[in-house]
Design a protein around this nucleic acid. Structure first.
Lengths: 203, 203
DNA sequence: AGCTTAAGCGGACACGAAGTCCACTTAAAA
DNA sequence: TTTTAAGTGGACTTCGTGTCCGCTTAAGCT
């Protein structure tokens, strides 16, 4: 007996018109998201801007968040690649404190360009279930372990909280802080958190 | 010439039926918010649960956020009072590191009881424009100044980010961390951030 | 007590967005 | 060319929001 088929559902290649429409949708959505608060952009608008029917849009993307996630995907992948195999201090080789600071720097750069999009991906509590969030989490964990921070797990979500899109926009837009200033603050946080503990942990 | 009237609009006392309905609304909303995700509770539901018409509800509260804010108000006031005039380490008198840790502890306690409500107050980016947020901000600033942290302002929103309701619920519900563990992590953060800087600031 | 007035009330209504459904079209394999 | 099913698009249903306006009633005045 021979297993010719291993994949449970052999994925048919995408049809030509489907691919064309997918591109149209992504382009139209990118444009709309850029010029306005993504959460105010309606699915209908995106469909019309893409020259596509509602049904077509919903076929692939169940909501705005899915579209924003698709648009964000490549940028996030690029950073993930650099974290794993790029040059220090972002990639391996530098001390944990420097790498953590560099990670924050990369996230600020990402947010500076695409904060709208990241905000657009947030539907309810969705941020934490994204694949990307899990990746950042693991990365930070590795760095904290390397820095010998006690009980690193409890700190992960706390350290990722400041790079949520709304906190970033609060600092950037409402308070008019420069990206450099925010990066500086996060570097400070990175160094202080990876420094030797000031008090002994409970016995 | 004598100023008899200083207040520009002498506020008439609330009418009896109005007061009664306000209480009904608050009670009904508290119940609904407690048993379900506040953002899924509709204004119409609240009105019906309170035995009140839609118009009556909208007269006082323009949206869910306003109701949640009203419900939260007293609790937040209580904490603010303690921060200003309570016993150390929450109130004045203790070292800044301890006070910051105590502040985090108080916020965890608040979130533990009313995370739903705090979540309910969030409509769009509203969190940062609340009066309470401004208060926490000033308080933390005072502590950082006392601890001689360099350029404290840049750190304020970063240090408040971990006590946003969604980050708290992510740790508490999704990850099943105990409140004590979260408090512990935040205490660690408080101590490390107020400790002497590990590297010199830029010249 | 009766009268007056405006705050308060509540339900009907208009509007807009979400999401579904299904008959038609068309790419691509046979 | 025929076949087939993926793909399309727009009409339709459902649901929540917020407003509007005629009626009710608390409370001040005489």
């Amino acid at each position: 007996m021979e297993h010719v088929l291993i994949e449970p559902n052999p994925p048919r290649p995408e049809r030509a018109d489907a691919a064309r429409n997918r591109m149209r949708i992504l382009e139209a959505a990118a444009r709309l998201f850029a010029e306005r608060d993504p959460n105010q952009v309606t699915m209908d608008e995106i469909a019309r801007a893409a020259g596509v029917g509602r049904g077509t849009l919903y076929r692939r993307y169940p909501d705005r968040a899915a579209i924003a996630a698709a648009l964000l995907d490549e940028h996030e992948r690029a950073i993930q690649e650099e974290l794993l195999r790029g040059a220090p201090p972002l990639g391996p080789g530098a001390p944990p404190a420097d790498r953590l600071a560099a990670f924050y720097g990369a996230m600020v750069k990402l947010l500076e360009q695409h904060a709208h999009l990241v905000l657009g991906t947030e539907v309810g509590r969705s941020r934490f279930v994204t694949g990307a969030y899990g990746f950042w989490r693991i990365h930070v964990r590795t760095l904290l372990v390397a820095a010998q921070v006690p009980d690193p797990d409890r700190l992960l979500d706390i350290l990722l909280a400041p790079i949520s899109p709304d906190v970033y926009l609060q600092q950037r837009v409402n308070l008019n802080y420069s990206p450099e200033r925010i990066t500086g603050a996060l570097s400070y946080l990175a160094r202080q958190i990876t420094a030797a503990p000031t008090v002994e942990p409970e016995p």
